[in-house]
Design a protein around this nucleic acid. Structure first.
Lengths: 242, 242
DNA sequence: GAGTGGTCTAGACCACTGC
DNA sequence: CAGTGGTCTAGACCACTCG
């Protein structure tokens, strides 16, 4: 009999999903350790090897970080290795520079058609809009306009942003409990309009990168849509292809 | 059974390196199957699980493709899934379009300072230069200028390129035995010069993506340096961040 | 030393392919 | 059916961290 198995999922993947639920529900928070492999094996009544394979996959997806001799930790943007996980900007010369975020504006608005579609929220639902400048070595390089699901980011103000010394995603994680997992970027070349040119200190009409990013949290839920204008006079966008 | 190694790397990584040597030396060619896990375990005198972990890593790096019930195969660009593995261009509307490569020029030259540095060859060493247009749905989208290590790509001519119906990397693999493993792209925004604008059918001075790609073969040896000018009027560059 | 993740082994069984 | 990769288990030992 040619039997079609409709939903075959190996045990380790079921375990993985169980652990994922724990992450999504906040049972274990970013930066905290999850139970040891041995403990999870007992809890789920499987062998340690099976738990291990489940965690292997999650580590490969940057959901979790293993530390030998210590334990397995929920990945966090509040971690030197992940501070600028989604930022691909590199200076033409010199080593890795640490960018400085300068918040410009922050207000509350209602989702237009495009924002509603991309963030998967109702038309007219509340959103937060942030405009900020990213400086490298004192020079403006990226001008971001950021759209955030309003229900998730209640209480976000310019003062909060200005008081924040970490990366935006670190702030989102610590203040709003939203962890960004993955993102998609759509890159185009555009000409600088007058206002953007001024902010980025380039000539009006000069070519810029337009980087549209949609960022997802657990469950592939989109929570952020941002458009960045990148000045590539002294920097470039680096992408590794495997 | 397996004896402690002279190096500090775990056994499965040594096994991986041994298999990698087989790939680099051409013992197993792209598209061919490598020996079964059981056979490799016997050959290297380790357990099948150790071989398995070695191959796991290689599969994750796209060096090898597993096919259940059949075997493990050397990854190849001559494979529908890998035809456009390094191409990130997507049309604004419509599904995935298949690009058409139009070779424009192909000549032999001597490596200048920049080409020599990037391709890690002596100054003045022979190189091949290719210029070609990539069309989507009949419309020109990408204008490429490609620099190739001359010693590796001897015999590359415009006629060869024009007779090729596959992707460039497929051609490189089948005709020159060079398999591209990974690449780095540096993206900037630039203004179209007169000649490029004409080829891409855009206005002179309009913003384009400049995508510089260095492509590496086994042993992290750079063998290709190309600069593409992308028209993002009806297409964009898509990047997934994890 | 106790506890953690990391490696390695051996064996059983399952799922898929092709003859 | 034999042969392949895929899953799962159980146990041993190693490497690292911390008290």
């Amino acid at each position: 009999m040619a039997q079609v198995s409709p939903t075959f999922s190996p045990l380790y993947r079921q375990i993985k999903n169980l652990i994922l639920q724990g992450l999504a529900s906040g049972e274990w928070r970013p930066g905290e350790a999850i139970p040891s492999e041995a403990e999870l094996a007992i809890r789920f009544n499987v062998s340690q090897g099976t738990v291990r394979k489940a965690i292997d996959e999650m580590a490969a997806e940057n959901l979790v970080v293993r530390k030998q001799g210590k334990g397995t930790y929920v990945a966090s943007h509040n971690d030197p290795r992940a501070f600028f996980r989604f930022l691909r900007v590199v200076p033409d010369v010199g080593g890795v520079a640490v960018p400085q975020s300068v918040p410009l504006e922050c207000w509350r608005a209602k989702a237009g058609q495009e924002a509603a579609r991309i963030l998967d929220i109702p038309l007219g639902a509340p959103i937060n809009i942030v405009r900020r400048l990213l400086k490298f070595d004192g020079k403006p390089v990226v001008l971001d306009e950021i759209y955030l699901s309003g229900d998730v980011f209640q209480g976000l103000t310019l003062e909060v942003l200005q008081g924040n010394q970490d990366s935006l995603y670190t702030l989102f994680e610590t203040h709003f409990g939203v962890r960004m997992i993955r993102a998609e970027e759509r890159i185009r070349a555009v000409a600088a309009d007058r206002a953007s040119a001024e902010q980025l200190q380039v000539d009006e009409g000069s070519p810029l990168l337009s980087v549209e990013r949609v960022t997802y949290t657990y469950g592939d839920k989109p929570v952020e849509w941002r458009r960045g204008l990148y000045s590539t006079a002294g920097h470039f966008y680096l992408n590794e292809l495997n």
